[in-house]
């Protein structure tokens, strides 16, 4: 890691600050990560059974980023991201039932069954969507931030994107204008080292470390271990505060690794098994659990109890999704256009 703090002097983030954490808070972080993990595993099962169709991109292995970052935000802040969006949505507090129902194409889904896995929305929770055109959410984040600024609010906009998006023109346009207009954006780069199947070293001049791309735009940028939830938390707390002060955007590159393929269709031929196995030993959930136990914050019983509750939540979500009705033929034609103002 090159740099993990926005402060001038280098500081290595450690897990030692777990010691300052309450038990409930630690269990909260653990349970959020585990919820995402179990939700994704169930989604994959449903995909194999044919209940989830289309594209399914799971967040397994990257849970620490969403869980480390999103709960830091206030309710009036905004989250917008890419198509690997289940983790972000759950971390933002979207009901797992509504999310699972959306994956199953049911009318009770958080997008009414019209968006699917890649397009989860919950505007009440300021979750502004998963967006499936690589890089396309970046200009939208700029716009939300501009709206915040024009409304003279102090909300921040957290925008997730992957290493693939960095090579889109929209990324550079967004960096420039965010910096130029000092917009309240936290750019959250999830660098999982592969743009679909292409190694970032083969797609980007300068190699796998990307945060330097923000520097020409005068945006403060750091790189952190995205598999360390406490590191993510600490950096995001700092970054969000900076943005909220009105000093313009920050850029956080979280180094990550997705344990499964790009999507369900991906045989992962482009990564060797050794690399995958090695990264799996760095499982962010296991690491946090072990650190917590080591720090004496939680014990095996606590963990087992949480795991049991999460299993129930996910099974309820599955049952809800399975039992929910499909959209009607009329729904095909609703919400293509908005109602006129005043209606």
């Amino acid at each position: 890691m090159k740099r993990s703090t926005f402060k001038e002097e280098q500081k290595v983030t450690t897990t030692s600050n777990i010691e300052n954490m309450e038990k409930q808070e630690a269990l909260g972080i653990f349970s959020r990560m585990l919820l995402i993990r179990r939700f994704e595993e169930e989604a994959e099962r449903l995909y194999r059974k044919g209940l989830v169709r289309g594209f399914l991109h799971t967040y397994i292995g990257e849970e620490a980023i969403a869980v480390g970052a999103i709960p830091i935000l206030r309710e009036d802040d905004y989250v917008i991201g890419h198509y690997r969006d289940h983790g972000h949505a759950l971390a933002r507090g979207i009901d797992p039932k509504a999310a699972m129902a959306e994956l199953c194409g049911k009318s009770t889904g958080c997008s009414g069954g019209k968006g699917g896995s890649m397009h989860l929305f919950d505007i009440e929770k300021h979750f502004m969507g998963g967006h499936a055109i690589v890089g396309g959410q970046l200009p939208l984040a700029i716009g939300i931030a501009l709206g915040v600024k024009l409304k003279q609010l102090d909300s921040v906009v957290m925008c997730f994107f992957g290493d693939g998006a960095v090579n889109e023109g929209e990324f550079h346009e967004a960096m420039n204008i965010a910096s130029l207009w000092k917009l309240p954006v936290v750019f959250m780069l999830e660098n999982n080292l592969y743009g679909m199947g292409t190694d970032v070293n083969r797609s980007r001049a300068g190699g796998s470390s990307i945060y330097g791309a923000a520097e020409p735009y005068m945006i403060p940028a750091v790189q952190i271990d995205g598999m360390d939830v406490m590191a993510v938390r600490e950096t995001v707390i700092e970054g969000v505060a900076k943005v909220r002060e009105g000093q313009g955007p920050v850029f956080i590159e979280s180094m990550a690794y997705r344990f499964h393929g790009h999507s369900m269709a991906d045989p992962s031929n482009y990564r060797d098994n050794e690399e995958v196995q090695e990264n799996r030993t760095r499982d962010p959930i296991d690491k946090f659990r072990d650190d917590c136990i080591e720090a004496g914050k939680v014990d095996g019983n606590d963990i087992a109890l949480v795991a049991e509750q999460i299993d129930i939540l996910v099974q309820e979500a599955r049952e809800f999704a399975e039992q929910s009705p499909e959209p009607t033929a009329e729904d095909l034609y609703t919400h293509i256009y908005a109602e006129p103002e005043g209606n």
Binding site: G147, E170, N176
Partner: peptide, 28 residues
């Protein structure tokens, strides 16, 4: 300048910025 915003020559991002601000209730 706040309400009459000259933009960089970045059509994608300033059109997107219009969309984003409209998403939260502005009328750009």
């Amino acid at each position: 300048e706040e309400r009459v915003r000259d933009t960089p020559i970045s059509e994608s991002v300033f059109v997107g910025a219009g969309i984003g601000s409209a998403m939260i209730g502005m009328r750009p």
